[in-house]
Nucleic acid binder design. Structure first.
Lengths: 147, 147
DNA sequence: TACGTATTATCTGCATAATGATAATATTCC
DNA sequence: GGAATATTATCATTATGCAGATAATACGTA
């Protein structure tokens, strides 16, 4: 009989749900959700990207990122500006308010990590991260060199 | 600067998304989704449970399971029957068609597992499962013995 | 036993998110 | 100019969780 309780997919889903719930709880006071936080994190590294570029960096579907950006724009944390060369595209920039949240929200993320990984040693966490990176699959595109 | 790319939450989300996508692909011919498959798996172990019981067994929110059952009922894989003692509740039973899918769908799940865990050794998979179970958090309720 | 209250089972509505399909518009390439 | 491509928006389906509504059951107390 199929043992759903011990299947990797099921366990991944439940671990993910718990991580989500904990992170949600930590950032709830700022009216954010985990994916919104993730998008902000990418923008703290670099903003002024198009939606497609952000979508690739964050491995977020192009349809999904539109809605995420809508909500963060409505919250006043980022803004769309016209691309100077390409009238189809927007460039996404953090607002002052969006930039100012970095420290506070990073602290929330640190607290979440602590809570989520309670029960694992530091070495185990490193190992877990390594395995997740393998499961996550290849993101790099191995281009076949044109001969 | 916060390193979202290496955060456990982000990596969990991406590994989960990949596992979902692979499983989805395998069971797509049968017009099912991963959560629908999971619910069926619990029913193969035991059916005739109420929605609440299924919700607890599968750690699925009560609102969520209502919709899942709706869709599986529409697909003809399960049916709601009136609870003989409790007129508020339904008992969820597999239909013949739902029972008949067990072997085929379990094979899909096996193939998914193989695809998802490509890159990990058997020992690593065991270790990964163990860690996921820890991250997933306690499900048992430790009742304080009344003195 | 009877009444009021608390609890339980389910449904509905709302917000968010992921994904795929399609459409509208702009750009690029031939 | 016309065809192919790229960027974004919109819509549909599914999933998830929360809060509120409804109906039925269980319980405590008079």
């Amino acid at each position: 009989m199929y043992d759903i309780e011990n299947s990797i997919g099921f366990l991944l889903a439940k671990a993910y749900q718990r991580a989500w719930a904990i992170m949600k709880e930590e950032i709830e006071p700022y009216d954010l959700t985990p994916p919104q936080f993730a998008l902000l994190s990418f923008l703290w590294q670099q903003d002024g990207l198009t939606q497609v570029e952000l979508s690739e960096k964050g491995q977020i579907d192009r349809s999904t990122i539109g809605g995420l950006i809508d909500r963060l724009e409505r919250s006043g944390l980022l803004e769309r500006r016209q691309h100077p060369q390409d009238r189809r595209a927007y460039l996404i920039f953090l607002t002052e308010q969006g930039k100012a949240m970095e420290e506070t929200l990073s602290a929330c993320a640190e607290r979440s990590l602590k809570r989520i990984t309670t029960g694992l040693s530091d070495d185990e966490i490193t190992e877990f991260r390594r395995m997740l990176n393998i499961l996550r699959g290849e993101r790099r595109v191995y281009e076949i060199p044109s001969c």
